[in-house]
Amino acid sequence: MNAASSSTWMWYASRATGVVALLLLTAVALLGLMVSRQARLADLPRFAVTGLHRNLSLLAVAFLLLHVLTAVADGYVTIALDSAVIPFTSRYERLWLGIGAVGLDLFLAVIITSLLRGHLGRRAWYAVHLLSYASWPIAFAHSVGSSGDMQSGWMLLLAVACAAALAAGITWRVRAAARDLPRAQRVHALMAELHARKPRAGAQ
């Protein structure tokens, strides 16, 4: 693929939205890790972190859809719309676009179940939500594999930085979970900590 020779703006738009979507999805995944460990971001209250995770994910999906639609609409290469969602059916770049379609499907599953969260059991929602761990590497592979530019230079650096950030985030999440107190002891620990800080507190 030599996209640089293309003169259509849509081709560029497609690639730009693709890169933004990858960045956004990285941010969304990092925020998701924080939400699951109830971590705080700067001075934001926890529910604001949750809100950011949710809203950025919707933005990311908007960019993903733009990315797909502009790629399909662009006439330079022919990509059928259905091959954007049905994996490995594209005649052009079958492998890398197929991987991208798998990623898109997984993201859509995560988003749709989250929008329907009120109607699903928590367990079912969470099981689907964990698919995001699979979807990110797939999206990453699609990005690097199908783009000539991301295989070198600052674009490659950007991609590697995203992967490194996510790897660090996952490591932190696993460690934090291992440090977790058993549920039955959490409140006691916190009460003890609060009382130690303010020796005057205590009704008797």
Binding site: Q38, R46, F47, R183, A184, V187, L190, H195, G202, A203
Partner: peptide
């Protein structure tokens, strides 16, 4: 102790109420 706001909020409220009471 399984929902963040409850786990983190109630002990804080309790400590503050103890301070007001004492």
């Amino acid at each position: 102790g399984q929902c963040g706001p409850c786990l983190n909020g109630l002990p804080r409220i309790a400590a503050a109420m103890a301070q007001i009471a004492s």
